[in-house]
Amino acid sequence: MSEIPADLSYTREHEWVRTEADGSVVVGISDHAQAQLGELVYVELPEVGRVVEAGAALAVVESTKAASDVYAPVSGSVVAVNEALNAGPELVNGSPYGDGWLVRLKPSAPATGLLDAAAYTQLVADESH
């Protein structure tokens, strides 16, 4: 079973979202998502300063068998990206909720439609049938 921390929010596209004290939002992919992809070989990150709409492609995570878009869970601007992934994309596999974070956004509008941990657990269970 994959790990689904209770204190995070999730999207239907298997991303996790954490709102920080300063109001910024950190985005990554879930443990389930990294396991499905297999070992990552490349992560394409956006430029800092880029403005994105909720639902737009934000980053690409690539393994040898798949390349998946990561979508912006909220509208906003990119304030930081995880530069460590350029040299070590496998950080996402080893620590999807920690050192393997992808992007930090400054939201321009509140997030809508996010799932809590229980709802996401159900989603993962439903999809594996």
Binding site: E62, S63, T64, K65, A66, A67, D69
Partner: peptide
């Protein structure tokens, strides 16, 4: 063959 994730059999419309 490498970098196959760019290709049509994996990435389809993208």
């Amino acid at each position: 063959l490498t970098l196959q994730a760019r290709e049509q059999h994996i990435r389809r419309t993208k």
